[in-house]
Amino acid sequence: MLTVRQVSRRYGETVALEGLSLEVPADTYMSLLGASGSGKTTLLRLIAGFEEPDAGQIALDGTRLDGKPPHQRDIGFVFQNFALFPHLSVAQNVAFGLRYRAANPLTDNEEIRARSEAALELVGLKGFGHRGIGAISGGQRQRVALARTLVCEPRIVLLDEPLGALDANLRARMCDELKAIRERLGVSFLHVTGSETEALTMGDRVAVLSGGRIVQADAPERLFAEPANAQAARHLNAWNIFDAGLCAGGGAGQLGVRFDQIDISAPGQAPGAHLRLPARFLAGEFNGPTALSFFRAADGSLLQVTDHLSQPRLPDLVEGQDYDLHFAPQTARQFPGAAR
């Protein structure tokens, strides 16, 4: 189990991480969701030892990691740009760690060959060993990077936006494969991403990084259905978050309502049991199986409503007209604090 406790990291005046705590249990696929610039990569670099924290502790299975040089940490790292060794072939890339690592390097060429071959087979690149790094595609490089890391049997693997450099098709396929490979090996993955879909699909657990700390870490279903706070909800790109005062009887603080749990009716027509929120229809956006409608509330905040084409539930909307948005009180989540 990887434990990060109260870790802070500053760059001059800018605070990247502020008292961040996180646990990655053994044999788990953990996604770390965060906007760009939220310090996701910094956290990984701290764990891997490329940088050190200003405060806090990082431990793996009870042993302190911070203060150790990176090559003694036994942590795998898959880089966003893959960082393959350009002067070596695929097989040499994979064998690199086995051959040259400081702690018990392998000297038996036959064993090195067999193990690299096995690693390449694991990532579906059997027979590619002799190729140059320039002679393979982006997706294949990704797999080489993965094989190169996995062959050394690290205690945990950190993946820094590993799918960011791939096109959409390939990304979907790699998602499944990453998951399958991890399950076969039983090693924990900590996968950093800026995409909520990726985080929710991949993770057995998903942690949301915001404002330099983890705002929630949970199973993906629970995180999606019951975000613990406004910051976590915002990262899921499925929740409207607005001042509770906008609804009659909404109480104090902020309310969060999922895009797909809001209904729309003409002003004054909403069912009495529902909470109501008057807003002006701005525009609609059609994107395949779902339709998005955008509304502006009285205090200027923007609200979204999604409608699934298979089960349409919205009336025809006219731009510039006022409507009542309404929802069942139990679908809303109450967050403390003022809006933004």
Binding site: E52, P53, D54, G67
Partner: peptide
């Protein structure tokens, strides 16, 4: 150039690395 001096508790790992 591993010069791992005994670590005074008040200096953070970041300062040591730097």
């Amino acid at each position: 150039l591993s010069t791992d001096s005994p670590m005074p508790t008040e200096t953070s790992p970041a300062q040591l690395r730097e």
